[in-house]
Protein backbone atom coordinates (compact mmCIF):
# COMPACT_ATOMS: atom_id res chain seq x y z
CA UNK A 1 0.00 0.00 0.00
CA UNK A 2 1.18 3.55 -0.76
CA UNK A 3 0.86 6.05 2.06
CA UNK A 4 1.60 9.76 1.61
CA UNK A 5 2.38 11.82 4.71
CA UNK A 6 2.00 15.60 4.37
CA UNK A 7 4.44 17.92 6.12
CA UNK A 8 3.14 21.41 6.89
CA UNK A 9 5.27 24.14 8.47
CA UNK A 10 5.00 23.18 12.15
CA UNK A 11 4.13 19.50 11.68
CA UNK A 12 6.03 17.47 14.26
CA UNK A 13 4.63 13.94 13.96
CA UNK A 14 5.28 13.53 10.23
CA UNK A 15 8.42 11.44 10.78
CA UNK A 16 6.57 9.24 13.31
CA UNK A 17 3.71 8.72 10.83
CA UNK A 18 6.18 7.78 8.09
CA UNK A 19 7.96 5.42 10.51
CA UNK A 20 4.76 3.65 11.55
CA UNK A 21 3.65 3.40 7.92
CA UNK A 22 6.96 1.85 6.85
CA UNK A 23 6.95 -0.47 9.86
CA UNK A 24 3.71 -2.01 8.63
CA UNK A 25 5.19 -2.77 5.22
CA UNK A 26 3.91 0.19 3.24
CA UNK A 27 5.62 2.31 0.63
CA UNK A 28 5.89 5.78 2.11
CA UNK A 29 5.80 9.05 0.19
CA UNK A 30 6.83 12.28 1.91
CA UNK A 31 4.50 15.06 0.70
CA UNK A 32 5.08 18.81 1.10
CA UNK A 33 2.41 21.43 1.79
CA UNK A 34 3.33 23.30 -1.42
CA UNK A 35 2.95 20.22 -3.66
CA UNK A 36 0.51 20.81 -6.50
CA UNK A 37 -0.02 17.14 -7.37
CA UNK A 38 -0.04 13.76 -5.65
CA UNK A 39 1.77 10.53 -6.64
CA UNK A 40 -0.72 8.62 -8.79
CA UNK A 41 -0.16 5.39 -6.86
CA UNK A 42 -1.36 6.81 -3.54
CA UNK A 43 -3.88 4.78 -1.48
CA UNK A 44 -3.82 6.78 1.75
CA UNK A 45 -2.93 10.34 2.80
CA UNK A 46 -2.01 11.04 6.41
CA UNK A 47 -2.23 14.58 7.81
CA UNK A 48 0.06 14.29 10.83
CA UNK A 49 0.06 15.93 14.24
CA UNK A 50 1.88 19.09 15.20
CA UNK A 51 1.21 22.80 15.26
CA UNK A 52 0.83 23.71 11.59
CA UNK A 53 1.40 27.44 11.07
CA UNK A 54 1.91 27.82 14.80
CA UNK A 55 -1.82 27.21 15.41
CA UNK A 56 -2.26 30.89 14.48
CA UNK A 57 -5.87 32.13 14.28
CA UNK A 58 -7.31 28.64 15.01
CA UNK A 59 -5.79 25.17 14.92
CA UNK A 60 -5.71 24.00 11.31
CA UNK A 61 -7.27 27.21 9.98
CA UNK A 62 -4.30 28.23 7.83
CA UNK A 63 -3.05 24.76 6.85
CA UNK A 64 -6.49 24.16 5.41
CA UNK A 65 -5.66 26.69 2.65
CA UNK A 66 -2.26 25.09 1.79
CA UNK A 67 -1.73 24.28 -1.87
CA UNK A 68 -1.74 20.53 -1.22
CA UNK A 69 -5.11 20.65 0.54
CA UNK A 70 -6.89 21.24 -2.78
CA UNK A 71 -5.44 17.91 -3.92
CA UNK A 72 -6.29 16.25 -0.59
CA UNK A 73 -9.92 17.37 -0.89
CA UNK A 74 -10.09 16.04 -4.48
CA UNK A 75 -8.46 12.77 -3.36
CA UNK A 76 -10.99 12.39 -0.52
CA UNK A 77 -13.94 13.26 -2.74
CA UNK A 78 -12.73 10.61 -5.18
CA UNK A 79 -12.89 7.98 -2.43
CA UNK A 80 -9.21 8.02 -1.37
CA UNK A 81 -8.47 7.26 2.29
CA UNK A 82 -7.50 10.31 4.34
CA UNK A 83 -6.41 10.01 7.96
CA UNK A 84 -5.90 13.11 10.14
CA UNK A 85 -4.13 12.64 13.44
CA UNK A 86 -4.44 15.34 16.15
CA UNK A 87 -3.58 18.55 14.25
CA UNK A 88 -4.50 16.61 11.10
CA UNK A 89 -7.99 16.05 12.59
CA UNK A 90 -8.24 19.79 13.27
CA UNK A 91 -7.26 20.53 9.65
CA UNK A 92 -9.90 18.08 8.35
CA UNK A 93 -12.60 19.82 10.43
CA UNK A 94 -11.51 23.27 9.27
CA UNK A 95 -11.51 22.09 5.65
CA UNK A 96 -15.04 20.76 5.95
CA UNK A 97 -14.04 17.16 5.17
CA UNK A 98 -15.21 16.22 8.68
CA UNK A 99 -18.06 17.75 10.70
CA UNK A 100 -17.63 19.60 13.99
CA UNK A 101 -14.67 21.42 15.49
CA UNK A 102 -11.94 20.91 18.10
CA UNK A 103 -11.63 23.57 20.77
CA UNK A 104 -9.70 24.30 23.97
CA UNK A 105 -9.71 21.38 26.43
CA UNK A 106 -12.33 21.72 29.13
CA UNK A 107 -9.72 21.85 31.92
CA UNK A 108 -7.64 24.42 29.96
CA UNK A 109 -4.57 22.17 30.27
CA UNK A 110 -2.41 20.60 27.60
CA UNK A 111 -3.01 16.89 28.16
CA UNK A 112 -0.17 14.47 27.40
CA UNK A 113 -0.77 10.89 28.57
CA UNK A 114 -1.95 7.45 27.53
CA UNK A 115 -5.73 7.10 27.20
CA UNK A 116 -8.02 4.18 26.53
CA UNK A 117 -10.23 4.14 23.47
CA UNK A 118 -13.16 1.88 22.73
CA UNK A 119 -13.46 0.88 19.08
CA UNK A 120 -17.08 1.50 18.14
CA UNK A 121 -17.22 -0.23 14.76
CA UNK A 122 -15.04 -2.34 12.48
CA UNK A 123 -16.90 -2.01 9.18
CA UNK A 124 -14.42 0.78 8.47
CA UNK A 125 -11.21 0.85 6.41
CA UNK A 126 -9.45 2.16 9.53
CA UNK A 127 -10.51 -0.55 12.00
CA UNK A 128 -11.36 -3.66 9.96
CA UNK A 129 -8.79 -5.87 11.77
CA UNK A 130 -10.10 -4.83 15.22
CA UNK A 131 -12.97 -6.19 17.30
CA UNK A 132 -15.98 -3.97 18.00
CA UNK A 133 -15.93 -2.99 21.67
CA UNK A 134 -12.23 -3.76 22.10
CA UNK A 135 -10.12 -1.23 23.98
CA UNK A 136 -6.76 0.15 22.88
CA UNK A 137 -4.25 2.24 24.84
CA UNK A 138 -2.83 5.13 22.81
CA UNK A 139 -1.29 8.48 23.85
CA UNK A 140 -2.91 11.90 23.49
CA UNK A 141 -0.95 15.17 23.36
CA UNK A 142 -3.08 18.24 22.74
CA UNK A 143 -4.39 21.47 24.19
CA UNK A 144 -7.32 21.81 21.80
CA UNK A 145 -8.96 18.44 21.43
CA UNK A 146 -12.45 18.99 22.82
CA UNK A 147 -14.75 17.78 20.05
CA UNK A 148 -17.79 19.97 19.67
CA UNK A 149 -20.58 20.34 17.14
CA UNK A 150 -24.02 21.97 17.07
CA UNK A 151 -26.69 19.65 18.56
CA UNK A 152 -28.21 18.75 15.19
CA UNK A 153 -24.76 17.95 13.71
CA UNK A 154 -23.85 15.80 16.71
CA UNK A 155 -27.14 13.93 16.37
CA UNK A 156 -26.45 13.24 12.69
CA UNK A 157 -22.89 12.04 13.49
CA UNK A 158 -24.37 9.55 15.96
CA UNK A 159 -27.30 8.56 13.73
CA UNK A 160 -24.95 7.86 10.82
CA UNK A 161 -22.58 5.80 13.02
CA UNK A 162 -19.68 8.10 12.26
CA UNK A 163 -18.06 7.69 15.70
CA UNK A 164 -15.14 5.28 15.39
CA UNK A 165 -13.46 5.78 18.79
CA UNK A 166 -14.63 6.99 22.21
CA UNK A 167 -12.52 7.73 25.28
CA UNK A 168 -13.25 4.92 27.73
CA UNK A 169 -12.09 3.27 30.92
CA UNK A 170 -9.69 0.31 30.47
CA UNK A 171 -12.71 -2.04 30.59
CA UNK A 172 -14.48 -0.15 27.81
CA UNK A 173 -17.03 1.67 29.99
CA UNK A 174 -17.65 5.23 28.80
CA UNK A 175 -17.43 7.65 31.74
CA UNK A 176 -16.74 11.37 32.23
CA UNK A 177 -13.51 10.41 34.07
CA UNK A 178 -12.23 8.69 30.93
CA UNK A 179 -12.70 11.86 28.90
CA UNK A 180 -9.39 13.80 28.87
CA UNK A 181 -10.65 17.00 27.25
CA UNK A 182 -14.42 17.36 27.60
CA UNK A 183 -15.27 16.08 24.11
CA UNK A 184 -19.02 15.70 23.47
CA UNK A 185 -20.13 12.06 23.87
CA UNK A 186 -16.48 11.12 24.69
CA UNK A 187 -15.70 11.35 20.97
CA UNK A 188 -12.03 10.72 20.12
CA UNK A 189 -12.32 9.85 16.44
CA UNK A 190 -14.93 10.15 13.69
CA UNK A 191 -15.28 9.49 9.99
CA UNK A 192 -17.15 11.35 7.29
CA UNK A 193 -20.47 9.83 6.15
CA UNK A 194 -18.80 7.94 3.27
CA UNK A 195 -16.31 6.48 5.78
CA UNK A 196 -13.12 7.18 3.79
CA UNK A 197 -11.97 10.19 5.84
CA UNK A 198 -11.08 9.75 9.51
CA UNK A 199 -9.91 12.14 12.22
CA UNK A 200 -8.48 10.97 15.54
CA UNK A 201 -7.08 13.09 18.39
CA UNK A 202 -4.89 10.38 19.98
CA UNK A 203 -1.68 9.31 18.22
CA UNK A 204 -1.63 5.68 16.97
CA UNK A 205 1.73 6.32 15.28
CA UNK A 206 3.22 6.87 18.75
CA UNK A 207 2.01 3.43 19.86
CA UNK A 208 3.44 1.23 17.14
CA UNK A 209 5.95 -1.01 18.94
CA UNK A 210 6.42 -2.43 22.44
CA UNK A 211 9.50 -0.28 22.99
CA UNK A 212 7.20 2.77 22.90
CA UNK A 213 5.03 1.29 25.64
CA UNK A 214 2.22 0.09 23.40
CA UNK A 215 1.73 -1.26 19.91
CA UNK A 216 -2.05 -0.78 20.03
CA UNK A 217 -1.89 1.90 17.33
CA UNK A 218 -0.80 -0.58 14.68
CA UNK A 219 -4.36 -1.76 14.05
CA UNK A 220 -5.10 1.40 12.02
CA UNK A 221 -2.16 0.79 9.67
CA UNK A 222 -2.89 -2.94 9.41
CA UNK A 223 -6.56 -2.18 8.67
CA UNK A 224 -5.65 0.22 5.88
CA UNK A 225 -3.23 -2.36 4.44
CA UNK A 226 -6.01 -4.97 4.56
CA UNK A 227 -8.43 -2.54 2.89
CA UNK A 228 -6.00 -1.71 0.07
CA UNK A 229 -4.95 -5.30 -0.65
CA UNK A 230 -5.46 -6.07 -4.35
CA UNK A 231 -8.85 -7.80 -4.52
CA UNK A 232 -7.68 -10.26 -7.22
CA UNK A 233 -4.69 -11.49 -5.22
Amino acid sequence: MNIGVVTFPGSNCDADARYASALTGNTVHALWHKDTSLPSSLDVIILPGGFSYGDYLRTGAIARFSTIMEEVVKFANGGGYVFGICNGFQILCESGLLPGALIRNENLSFVCKDVHLRIEKNDSPFTNVAQVGSVVRIPVAHGEGRFTAPAEVLASIEDNNQVLYRYSMPDGIITPEANPNGSLNNIAGITNIAGNVMGLMPHPERACEPLLGSSDGLHVFHSLAQQCKPKFA
Binding site: L57, R58, A61, F65, C93, E94, P99, G100, A101, I103, T148, A149, P150, V153
Partner: peptide, 8 residues
Protein backbone atom coordinates in the same frame (compact mmCIF):
# COMPACT_ATOMS: atom_id res chain seq x y z
CA UNK B 1 -14.06 32.15 4.88
CA UNK B 2 -11.07 32.48 7.19
CA UNK B 3 -11.21 34.72 10.24
CA UNK B 4 -13.87 32.71 12.08
CA UNK B 5 -15.16 29.14 12.09
CA UNK B 6 -18.96 29.29 12.07
CA UNK B 7 -19.14 25.84 13.68
CA UNK B 8 -17.81 27.27 16.93
Amino acid sequence: KLLTNPVM
